[in-house]
Design a binder for these strands. Sequence first.
DNA 1: GTCTATATGCGGATAGAC
DNA 2: GTCTATCCGCATATAGAC
Lengths: 199, 199
Amino acid sequence: MARKTGSHSEITGPRIRAAALQLFARHGFAAVSMRQIAGEVGVQAGALYLYTPDKQTLLFDLLEAHMVELLDSWSKSEAGGDPVQNLEAFCRCHIQFNLSHSDSLFISYMELRNLDPDNFAKIEAYRKRYEDALEAILKAGTEAKLFSLPDTKLATMAVIAMLNGVNTWFREGGRLSQDRVERIYWNMVRRAVGAKGFS
Amino acid sequence: MARKTGSHSEITGPRIRAAALQLFARHGFAAVSMRQIAGEVGVQAGALYLYTPDKQTLLFDLLEAHMVELLDSWSKSEAGGDPVQNLEAFCRCHIQFNLSHSDSLFISYMELRNLDPDNFAKIEAYRKRYEDALEAILKAGTEAKLFSLPDTKLATMAVIAMLNGVNTWFREGGRLSQDRVERIYWNMVRRAVGAKGFS
DNA sequence: GTCTATATGCGGATAGAC
DNA sequence: GTCTATCCGCATATAGAC
């Protein structure tokens, strides 16, 4: 609704990214026009190009920011306990981050194919770093005989897929609180990895 | 490559759907033009409209066919054994179907948001029927004290998400055979649901 | 059943005024 | 820093020849 104030400032950049994020999540990258993004911000299409060289870079910046925040979030939550404690921390951190960044999680999976090959490779490298963090926990637990896993790589993929699924159905204020959901999922995960001392 | 043969036949319809499926999976519904689809089939864009009223209906038909085949596949695999046997059959059937229909699985999740509201509702109804089939197994097993699950709805979503994840990384001829992958996932699932008699 | 031609509109991106 | 105007191409869908 802000228009024609003549000249405002560096808050426009973030607003463009926020609008693009929401629109891409809702309708898909290819289906959203630069005009739509501009309209959401209250600016003309041409003005967007003061903040991004093109639409592709806008998408990449959103995905990269998501991965950086995700890795940052885990590095702050990392407890440094035993593998069981670390796995619980990972599960809870992952669910919490995903639910508080649902739009960017969504486009991080859905719009990968719309990235240029170079950009795609960069995002995949971030993703691998994140998966490696989980696999390190599973490996440590398996070696310490705390977990029983025939293949830690498969288990890594299985756990991440299972936890990501929360975002497809969870709604705030629904039947279950977020904390309850975290607990139920953590219990399913600890059983899936064959954690000892837990039937 | 077939062109100007003057007049061929009812095989064009299926070829159009096959081409659309592959292109939608690869580049996304919004990013694919009717011209591209026509080009893939070896036909002009206008000719597509002899087989589909519009692009939207083409997408819907693909998604509906996928859900019908999926439900059909499960109804044929349904063993009618005890809950543990049924759950194993479900997991294997699900993985097998997904891996042999990877393109249509992909668009079934990615292109939902490009459906008209009416079409979306129809596909969601199919999906719910499928989820209900799994939940029925989990409920029966929980009531028979064969599984230990605080919430069968969550477990349903968790299992499906976990199994769907296989498609994101599995490649034929890779490190693990498909049968081995099925077994490993089935073991993670049976543990996640707290199946008795299995540590 | 398929082709060519076309109507009509929106797409990304840029130039230059203010 | 934003707006207006515009270039140019491709989009879906249709009409009518063969």
